[in-house]
Design a binder for these strands. Structure first.
Lengths: 246, 246
DNA sequence: CGACGTGTTGATCTCTCTCAATTAGAGTGG
DNA sequence: CCACTCTAATTGAGAGAGATCAACACGTCG
């Protein structure tokens, strides 16, 4: 696998990510071990795996999940390019989650001590790690609010709007008029929202028949964002806060 | 309010917390502005409040929460002494949560730029902030698994066991034989588990009649930990990982 | 062509919610 | 000391959102 320079990383060009100095990028690159390609539907990190490396998702989709011993699965959040993978595992925590790809993906693999080295050598980037971690927690917070207190219809509307905005922020400016890539199966949606597959299907169809959205050919189209937003009880301009990319 | 020295902070003496060097503690103390006393059931941070300060919970209980516009509330996690309050708010995130006390509490208030200063001046402590943030996320992950995929009985068993262990880790060694303090109302339990108040009550009573636990006089007694643990489908030794205290 | 994964729909079933009423305990004021 | 009030806990009854069970359609792939 060709070792792509972090300096030329196409993700950094996106307005979603804050600029780092040359020396910061050089530090990140020095901590990077390699890039790996992972096919869709592969488990990247197993639940309970204690020695997982640190990754950044470079391309493709993935998700974090936990399961109960009888197989019930909860997806904790979906991972998009630029997302960190595996910080929690590095923290020696008993409760670990698994990570699985949704699509073919490319991951940047970092040295095991990368999180510490970032803190030690570049406070700004160390702060960035904290920021990313706190931000990911806020995504889980939002999902917990949904799963705990929203109806099935409200949950699905929320997921569609929130994911759409996250994906759109990664597309070249102005893109996303013709929908955005959407590789989730209905089983993934169900597992992400604490619903059964059947009820997820029925609720999705109901919203689709009302003309609020369309999922077709692996793309998600939001046809009536304002109604979806109202159903979801969401607020805020939806403009994502620029984030560090490590 | 007397400014108690961080050096002599009684929390640091607990085996739950890792030791810091004198200079690290001095740095923490230099970033500390004051201590404040907050009565029970007070909102410390309002949802959406952007300029919240950074706190450490010194004594008492609190919780983080989010609400929908019609008043439905989801408690995201419970906060015990030593827990950080307000890191996410500092990250300029759109989605903010509220924080409310459950009991009379004492909070250490830090300078607004404390998180950054920690990263800048003491990488170890900056790393500690990341650690704490990641750890808190893992607590939310666990709750999300519960709320999304566990039955009411399983959720309550999980909450009782997990909270009991967290509280016991804060008590003088060997204490906790006669139960642990437990200031939650059934409404708090319901809001933490995505259940209705009535169903929470009925499920609690059912477990209590089976002799698995007892809640009485503001204390929680686990009478049959192994059965509760089995119902909850929990595993692990339950020994908490030592954590930084900032 | 059959197996398999994914999506779809109808028919029950049941867990949990909502509504309603009662009890118990802590304060509070006269 | 006793009514009065308020909060928290409790219990029953009925309703409903969502789960489970079952069948079928459709496309892909070996």
């Amino acid at each position: 696998m060709k070792h792509v320079s972090c300096q030329n990383c196409p993700l950094r060009a996106l307005p979603l990510f804050v600029a780092h100095t040359d020396s910061q990028v050089a530090l990140i690159e020095s901590l990077k071990r390699e890039q790996i390609v992972v096919p869709a539907d592969r488990t990247v990190i197993h639940e309970g795996q204690g020695d997982a490396p640190l990754y950044t998702l470079f391309s493709g989709w993935a998700f974090r999940f936990k399961t109960l011993s009888d197989g019930r699965r909860q997806i904790l959040n979906f991972l998009l390019p630029g997302d960190f993978i595996g910080v929690q595992q590095k923290m020696g925590d008993a409760s670990a989650h698994g990570v699985q790809t949704l699509t073919d993906a490319m991951l940047c693999v970092f040295r095991r001590d990368a999180v510490w080295e970032l803190h030690r050598s570049a406070p700004t980037l160390g702060f960035g790690v904290t920021w990313l971690t706190a931000h990911e927690e806020s995504l889980v917070d939002d999902t917990l609010l949904s799963v705990g207190r929203r109806s099935a219809e409200e949950r699905i509307a929320t997921l569609l709007v929130v994911l759409y905005k996250r994906v759109a922020a990664l597309l070249p400016d102005g893109d996303g008029q013709d929908g955005v890539p959407f590789p989730l199966t209905q089983q993934h949606i169900a597992d992400g929202l604490g619903l059964s597959l059947v009820h997820t299907n029925k609720t999705l169809r109901k919203l689709e028949r009302r003309g609020l959205h369309r999922i077709e050919g692996g793309r998600l189209h939001l046809l009536d964002v304002s109604t979806l937003t109202r159903i979801a009880d969401l607020y805020g301009d939806g403009k994502p806060v620029p984030r560090p990319l490590i």
